[in-house]
Amino acid sequence: MIKFFFLFIFMFSFFLGASDCDFSESFTKGKETMIDLSSLSERNPLNIRVVYGPDSDTVRESIFPFSETFKFVPERAGIIELIIDDMDGEQICSVKRSVYFDGLPLTGILIFLFAGSFLFTGTFLSLKNALKD
């Protein structure tokens, strides 16, 4: 049914969020992508943080020194957050992007097939039996 904890924390983070970084590159796991960050160089940028799986319990962070042309090779597919910090530790901007899988993820497809066949077969068999009466 339902659960609401931390509504206020969620709300607050929306309003405190830094502005969006202005770039539109798309990413694929393991493939290098050049990101042009030259427009931010006047704002004393210090580093670039890449957060894999933001807001999840599997969150992982990589930190890179700032460079105007950032060569980014995503380590994981999924949702990522790119954050640019300045010298004072404040966020200059942040943006969320999706990282594509490099091909078909075999384990993911196997789990999909297993869970799908378990649940759909269970539904089909039990409903068939129930409605037979």
């Binding site: 659960k3 609401f4 904890f5 933001p54 807001d55 949702i79 957050e81 999706s98």
Partner: peptide, 18 residues
């Protein structure tokens, strides 16, 4: 979520309405 790069933080209420 993937198509629009959204991470589903927070609760049911947050997911439904935000």
């Amino acid at each position: 979520l993937f198509a629009f790069s959204i991470s589903p933080r927070a609760s049911t209420l947050g997911m439904m309405f935000f």
